[in-house]
Design a protein around this nucleic acid. Sequence first.
DNA 1: TGGTAGAGGCTTTTT
DNA 2: GCCTCTACCA
Length: 742
Amino acid sequence: MSNELNERQREAVTCTEGPVLVIAGAGSGKTRVLTERIAHLVRNVGVPPWNILAFTFTNKAAGEMRERLERASPGISQSLWVGTFHATGVRILRRHGDRIGVRRHFSIYDADDSANLLKAITSRSMLDARVVKSPRWLHDRISRMKNELMSPELAMEQARDRVEKRVAELYAQYEKDLRRANALDFDDLIAKVVELFAADEDVKAEYATRFRYVLVDEFQDTNPIQMAMIDALASHYRNLFVVGDDDQSIYGWRGAKVEHILQFEDVYPGTRVIRLEQNYRSTQTILDAANQVIANNVGRKGKNLWTDGPVGDKVQLIESLDEETEAVNVFHTVRALVTKGENLKDIAILYRTNAQSRALEEAFKLGSLPYQIIGSVRFYERMEVRDVLAYCKVLANPDDSTNLKRIINVPRRGIGKASVDLVEAKSAETGRSMMDLLRSGAPGAPGAHVLPAAAAKRCQAFLELFASLESVAEHEPAPRVVEAIVEKTEYMKYLKDDYPDSDARIENVEELVNAAHLFAESSEDKSLRAFLEEVALVADVDALDPEKGALTLMTLHNAKGLEFDCVVITGLEEGLFPHYNSIDSEREVEEERRLFYVGMTRARKHLYLSCASVRRRMGHIEGSVPSRFLLEVPEQCLEHAVAGASAGRASADTAGATDGAVGWESHARDEIAAAHRQPDYESFSQEESVEFEVGMRIRHESFGPGVVRKVEGGGDHTRVTVIFDSGGERKFLARFAPMRPI
DNA sequence: TGGTAGAGGCTTTTT
DNA sequence: GCCTCTACCA
């Protein structure tokens, strides 16, 4: 793509001085603009790369930008600061954190660590069970406050009832315990930087004068604490360049404020506003559909994407009976695309919730199509991986009591809850870390004043093991340390003895060892601490590998910033997308709609939308109504797809071929045969609209015969209530429901 | 202290 | 429907 920049893009690249706001529609080439702007600054304006700071949304985006710049002008990416807010925050805090009491070797707590710490805090008081729904819930509340720059003190001041008061107290305690453990949670990585800049003018000035040019990608998804960090960093030169799209703001639930875009000109007077509306990605049809959908949102800046590319195919609608059938239909769709010459790596399947990946995964496994799932059960969240990492974390920072508790009796070494509770209570009482307490006391007797002799002896054994690991960690690079942990704790033996599915778990541990080796090969600093830092900051999307030759399954949120030739969006049903929890609030429905818009605009050539008429939800089977978003797609852009033989069980015939030895082409015959045995659900759906009337006898493909009780609305929005002979009453959208008069 | 069985909660999205 | 946590017993 070495084409010429268009006029607007060129303006965005070359207009270097003062604040600039770029409203960049989906596929309008904003990544390119960002990269070229940096290249322009260095090459043509003569700015040294170390005077430039750029924020990206993921590490992957940062890596790609670095790579492109490196290709254009070798050597430049070395001294350039490009990264996520979190990664940049860590970098600053490792250098200057000590000015506000953040010790050098702090641990980074992920959501799980934070929840564990909060659990320990709340379980100290019985009363908290009534106030706190779950540690996660509490962490959510605290996280939101941190992201809004609210201290525990301020939270206490503003607390309006007993629950809020108690939450504020727990927030304060949480902060105290984090400090005692020498740990920062995820939000702290940014919050502490803001605190540092507020507390120390010199440090702030040092960074603000160093970074003459500050660039921010995905600006619509910045939250107040990130905005505060940006403000501080850009305070001296005010050469702040932000790129965003208010229509793609999908992180409101995480505190992101679209207002940052809408009010940018007020906060930064003299802002040059540049709009990029020409789309270089999608077909006209896909853009028409997406434009129409997003037009249903009020309170947006308003824009219309256009392209001078081809009209392209219509958006295809896939209707299925249930989740499993949907998965099979999606599988057939993908297979047909591949037969037509599409590459698997250019195909993505997107969904609202991670849980939806299960059925899809099953279908693709059965059909032997290679796929990669982003997110879902995250690698670094697996129990066995966390165990080994917990050893690493405690080695890097012995005061990390949350992780010490995790490993002190894993594998089992006879140190039970009673002992741990004793030490923990003592720790809370004295303010000393648990490791500190264990190691102190009379010589040869860990926690001599705390534990009974038998327990103390077992703790002694643990301390000896730990000391031997420490001596490895002292001189050896990260991979050797990880290996030593696995060996000396006999961790694999523990997995084999205790877990029936030990094979997969052992593989995961091996993969972690592998990851450590990979890290050591590619990184200058090979220390355990550096490794832990990288592990803490990677996101799921960072693992996305287009060279794998596999199709991609992921949430719509994860798809932000990516693009594919073919995109399938599944689960377009009321309650799932838009999600139940958002459905009562117009504001939240609009965010869901933006999420749908993001999904649609990921597609270059082919877009498929899929829904099912029943879906399992937490064990129950529930009838579902097609999403309102489907109705917002203009009829002339939409076409009912023939998703091949759609018999729900078709691929069961291929079960014997799951080892992948047999290519999927050879299954076609089996499936045609199976389709004859199974009812063909596709042929069941409405080709032309039927006028339903009250009292009419109908047959629904999944619920059987019934009587129409009520008809509401008109045209595409007609809703029909049916009482089924089997007893249930359900409401459907006439346009989509797989039923007809009998 | 460790093992087991039953209850309960969970699923919205993530750096 | 699955996973995690808790309570109780050996």
